[in-house]
Design a protein around this nucleic acid. Structure first.
Lengths: 222, 222
DNA sequence: ATCGTCGGATTGTTCAACGATTCTTCGATC
DNA sequence: GATCGAAGAATCGTTGAACAATCCGACGAT
């Protein structure tokens, strides 16, 4: 193995711990819809399935609970998080706060280029008629917007929010008609951003988020 | 506090688990400055001190790590989080995003009254020359602003941010001169909010946060 | 049908153990 | 005398087992 060439912060090779790999696996299953909201996660079962100890599963649960992907009910177990009344509005409130704030602050040319890249990624996915890739591209787009702010903390908040939305809205709302609308919106938002019209970009983004919230609330009960 | 009259969510009597109480105790010690940034937290030691098992301490650590109050270094241990370059800016970026967004959305009369209450709390603390209470009042003020949005998620994000700031800036920056300035600012922000001048309230708040960031960066290295 | 009780299942927590990794100390070598 | 490396101590990561506390469902009595 090559020695570290930079003398700055020692680069940890950081093999993810077993607990983190378990969390990652569960996150994957949650995002893919293999574990549906409300499902019960029994410690012993998962421990056996993944070939790890119950304590390790416990640590993974703690991590997922802090991300609101699962809910712990004392002495009863952990359950995949379910959509409570107001949760949709809550999630979009967070998105409006951090996405709009990020875009209004502008960003470096590289970060703006990343936003543009996500837009093009979406167009390609649409051309290829790949709904899965289309969904990913949209998440990349909004992730790139938050990344404009260059804030570690906002990035992780956004990651968590997007993970929650994947959990709730995964395949159900994935019809092409639903998607094609915001493809143009993303383009417009990105164009405004590139033109330095930050105020306008913020308004477009706000409008998009409001409409998107309405759509989700229409699809789901109330 | 009045019991919830709505029959909706079943109220868990929720005796906090041991792990949560350990986390709470550590959070307290971190906020009070008993555990300074960079300090090492040895699992075995804390387990013995608090009379709990090492595994339980581990769970508490996981929670604190998710709040960025401590940092886990694989195979080395957990350390009280330290201020890295850019962290101050990062924290204020989050605050600008969620506080300004919240205040621009306005809020119910009750929530606005809570903001007013925090302002008055600050004035009383200033009159009594109680610096500790003054600091708390300021945190209540900004917490109340975020509470305007009535978002569970924004509230917990803000809680975490404020906990981080307590950790980094606890007693050090607590001189009366530093405080008296923003007492008037809080009053002005609150007045604008009460008058429904949300745009203006947002600008005042932004200005305050920018200045506050500058001050903190001046006090701490760069 | 309602209520209380009992047994089974699962969680919360503890404890002991062991390999793996890091830190420290202490010589040996140049 | 400084550098390097190897032995040893300390700590973490993870496991497995154990036990009390709690919850759930069934069963039976009123």
């Amino acid at each position: 193995m090559a020695p570290p060439l930079t003398s700055s912060a020692r680069v940890r090779i950081a093999v993810p711990s077993v607990a983190e790999r378990v969390a990652e696996e569960l996150r994957y299953q949650l995002a893919e819809g293999m574990l549906l909201p409300g499902a019960r996660l029994t410690e012993a079962t998962i421990a056996e399935d993944l070939g790890v100890s119950r304590n390790t599963v416990r640590e993974a649960f703690a991590e997922l609970a802090s991300e609101r992907l699962v809910v712990r009910q004392p002495n009863r177990g952990v359950f995949v998080a379910t959509l409570e009344a107001g949760d949709i509005h809550d999630l979009y409130t967070v998105r409006r706060a951090i996405e709009v704030s990020s875009i209004r602050g502008g960003g470096s040319p590289e970060r703006i280029a990343a936003v543009r890249a996500a837009v093009e990624e979406g167009k390609r996915a649409a051309a290829a008629d790949d709904n899965d890739a289309l969904g990913s591209a949209n998440q990349h787009f909004h992730g790139a917007i938050v990344a404009l702010a260059e804030s570690k903390r906002l990035d992780t908040i956004m990651r968590h929010v997007l993970a929650e939305m994947r959990l709730y809205f995964h395949k159900a709302t994935a019809d092409a008609h639903f998607y094609s609308a915001w493809l143009e919106e993303n383009e417009a938002i990105c164009a405004a951003l590139e033109a330095g019209e930050l105020e306008r970009a913020g308004e477009l983004l706000t409008g998009y988020l409001n409409r998107s919230e309405e759509q989700q609330r229409a699809v789901h009960g109330e």
